[in-house]
C-alpha cells in the first residue's frame, strides 16, 4: 500500500513538473500542442464563421490544429468567462466581439473584464443599419427621430438583445438627439428583423447583411447605414452621414488571448494572424459570409477596445444598466 502511495506521489510530481515546464513555453517552441479558439456564440453564427475561416489558415501556418470550441450563452458572456479561466500560456484564444467583451462586464459580474485579455488582431467588421418594414410610414432617419420627439417612448425598436452593441449605440444616438425610444430584444439579429417585419416594433437596428435579400424583395426599407460610405450590397441605402447624423458604428470581431501570456508568444501569434488574415484566400471566404474585412493589428485593436469600454460605460450609466 505504502509503495503505491510513493509511486502515485512520484507520478503526480512528475506530471506537475511536466506541466510547469510546459507552461513556460518560449516562442521558438510555440506552438507545441493544439491551440483552442473559444467562440462564445453557437456554431453557425457570424463570429463562428470568422473563427473557422481563420482557424483553418492558422493550422496551415503554424503546423498545429487550431480547434474552434463553441461555448454559447449569456450573449457571449459564458464563453468569455470560460476563456478567462484558461492558463495564460497562449494556447487558448478568444474570438471576441463588441458587446460581450466591452459591455457585458460593465452590466453584470461576468467573470471577466476586457482588461483580462490582450488583443492579437481585429479581423472583420459588420456594419449596422436601421431598417423599417415596407409598410412603415417612416421614409428617412429624420422621420423616425421626429416621431420619437413628438411622443417620447412611443417609437419602438429591436436589436439582438439588451446590452448588445446595437442597443448601446442606438441609445447613444437617442441621447445625442435628445429623444427617448422603447427597446425590445429580438433574441438574436434575425429575431430582431422578424419583429420589424411583423410590425411589432417600428424599426430594427442590426447588422446590415441581415437585410440584403429582404430589401431587394421590397419587404424592408433600409433608412440609414451607420458607416462611412454606402455598402456594396445595399447600394440604395443612404448612410446616416448623408442625412446629417454623425453616426458611424460597427460590430467588430477579433482574436485575443489571456493577459499574462509570454510576450514572445503574443508577438508570434500577432505575426501569424496578420499574415493569414491578409491573404486573398481568407478575403474570399469572408466575402462569401458577407463579412467585411477590417484588419487592425494588436496595438490598434487594443486601443479600440479600451475606447469602446470607456464610451459604453457612459451610456450604460445613462440608461441604468451599469452595475
Amino acid at each position: 500500500m505504502r509503495n503505491w502511495n510513493v509511486l502515485a506521489g512520484g507520478l503526480m510530481t512528475a506530471t506537475c513538473l511536466a506541466v510547469a515546464t510546459g507552461s513556460g513555453a518560449i516562442a521558438a517552441d510555440y506552438p507545441e500542442k493544439p491551440v483552442e479558439i473559444v467562440v462564445p456564440f453557437g456554431a453557425g453564427d457570424a463570429l463562428d464563421s470568422t473563427a473557422r475561416v481563420i482557424a483553418e489558415r492558422l493550422k496551415d501556418k503554424l503546423g498545429v490544429p487550431f480547434i474552434v470550441k463553441n461555448i454559447p450563452g449569456a450573449g457571449g458572456g459564458k464563453g468569455t468567462a470560460e476563456a478567462n479561466k484558461a492558463a495564460h500560456d497562449g494556447y487558448t484564444l478568444l474570438m471576441g466581439s463588441t458587446g460581450a467583451l466591452t459591455a457585458g462586464p460593465l452590466i453584470n459580474d461576468a467573470g471577466y473584464k476586457a482588461e483580462d485579455f490582450v488583443a492579437l488582431a481585429q479581423l472583420v467588421e459588420a456594419p449596422i443599419a436601421l431598417a423599417v418594414a415596407a409598410d412603415s410610414p417612416y421614409k428617412s432617419v429624420k422621420d423616425v427621430v421626429e416621431a420619437a420627439k413628438q411622443a417620447p417612448g412611443k417609437v419602438t425598436y429591436s436589436t439582438p438583445g439588451p446590452g448588445a452593441t446595437q442597443h448601446i449605440n442606438m441609445e447613444i444616438l437617442a441621447k445625442d438627439q435628445g429623444i427617448e425610444m422603447t427597446h425590445i430584444g429580438g433574441r438574436g439579429g434575425k429575431g430582431a428583423v422578424t419583429k420589424a417585419l411583423s410590425g411589432e416594433v417600428d424599426f430594427v437596428f442590426v447588422g446590415a447583411s441581415n437585410y440584403t435579400s429582404l430589401a431587394e424583395a421590397g419587404k424592408l426599407r433600409v433608412l440609414g447605414v451607420a458607416a462611412e460610405e454606402r455598402l456594396t450590397y445595399l447600394p440604395d441605402a443612404p448612410t446616416f452621414k448623408e442625412q446629417g447624423y454623425d453616426f458611424d458604428v460597427a460590430v467588430w470581431f477579433g482574436l485575443l488571448t489571456n493577459k499574462g501570456a509570454p510576450d514572445d508568444v503574443v508577438d508570434k501569434l500577432r505575426e501569424a494572424i496578420a499574415e493569414v488574415a491578409n491573404s486573398d484566400e481568407t478575403r474570399d471566404l469572408y466575402k462569401k459570409f458577407d463579412l467585411n474585412e477590417a484588419f487592425l493589428d494588436g496595438a490598434a485593436f487594443q486601443e479600440r477596445i479600451e475606447g469602446n469600454v470607456a464610451t459604453h460605460a457612459v451610456v450604460l450609466k445613462d440608461i441604468g444598466l451599469m452595475k
Binding site: 450563452g73 449569456a74 458572456g77 453584470n108 459580474d109
Partner: peptide, 20 residues
C-alpha cells in the same frame, strides 16, 4: 441567468457559468 428583457443577471449565486 441573464434576463432577456432587462439584461441583468438573476439568481446566479455569483457563478458566471449560470449567466446563460
Amino acid at each position: 441567468g441573464i434576463d432577456e428583457v432587462g439584461g441583468i443577471t438573476r439568481f446566479t449565486f455569483g457563478l458566471p457559468e449560470l449567466q446563460g
